[in-house]
Amino acid sequence: MTNLVQHDETTATSRSDAAALLQVRRLVVEYGVGAKLARAVDGVDLAIRRGEIIGLAGESGCGKTTIANAVMQILRPPARIAGGRILFEGEDLLGKSTEELRRFRWRNVSMVLQSAMNALNPVMRVGDQFVDAMRAHQRIDRRRTVARTGELLELVGIDRRRARAYPHELSGGMRQRVIIALALALDPQLIIMDEPTTALDVVVQREILQQIQDLQQELGFAVLFITHDLSLLLEFADRIAIMYAGEIVETGPAERLGVNPQHPYTQGLLNSFPPLSGPLTRLTGIPGSPPDLRNPPSGCRFNPRCPHCLPDEPILYLRQTTERPLLRVVESGHEVACHLVAGAPE
């Protein structure tokens, strides 16, 4: 493994997090054993404040879904948490008992997945699934659950009579709304959404995102929005974190990232989205492919693909290939992990 320079506790993430709802500190998630050991998440720090929409962007294999599963504590073997802490409202989730976790799930944090059909039971009516979910997590009588189900469906723009329908009778967009409503059932403080609109048509996608925004403003929950579509996050999120090969390489407010991306990977990603208006130029994307996490490049993991990593500058090159860059602050709220960026280590 690369040598990790001693990471001071007083780093960016423990800044005044009085409003921090969820704090992930130096999380490490591993798969496999021995020669096949891979770190899907390698020392990630992430903070989510109340009521904010934070986007987590990255391509396949970068570890973003693993983080979501880790926060929900639903990692399955052979994946395991090998280090770090996950603090929800100050309490470490990793020390909780199964019973406590069961109460925590859905009531404090809930999840919306990419495919509704993975979350919905195809042989149960939609309304019954709400009842199921609610009664699994709290004591509540049937009449109240039915009433609440109706409320939730209307909240997401579905006629409450559709509670009698089976999932396959609803369209893809409606099913996705149903699982959003399910996620809201117990009024959680944080909803993790993992590619919730990827499988949907672009018009439905926008309708759903508008819906989520409206709900979020009304109910005040925070959203961790995981997706590979950075262009979506630039419009939709308050803050964005960019992940590459198990590490967070840049975080910052959405506007700043779109206008002033610092990390070469972020720049490359932005350079991969053709514009819908304005002049058309040849884009280049990013050459190469993400590394094998069993044997990642030493130093900065992006160095094989980075246009700024060249042997012509030996001192810099040496750093890039041996030393892992740390997140440094470049401007308020904007941090980058890159040797080219001289920021304050805080």
Binding site: S171, V203, R206, Q213, D229, S231, L234, E235, L276
Partner: peptide, 27 residues
């Protein structure tokens, strides 16, 4: 026009262009 308004365009923020269409899908 609906498609164009719906496609994410980082040049504008989400609330800047809400699409209003009667609910339905490309059936």
């Amino acid at each position: 026009r609906l498609l164009l308004a719906a496609v994410p365009d980082p040049a504008r923020k989400l609330h800047a262009q809400r699409i209003e269409s009667r609910k339905g899908h490309a059936s």
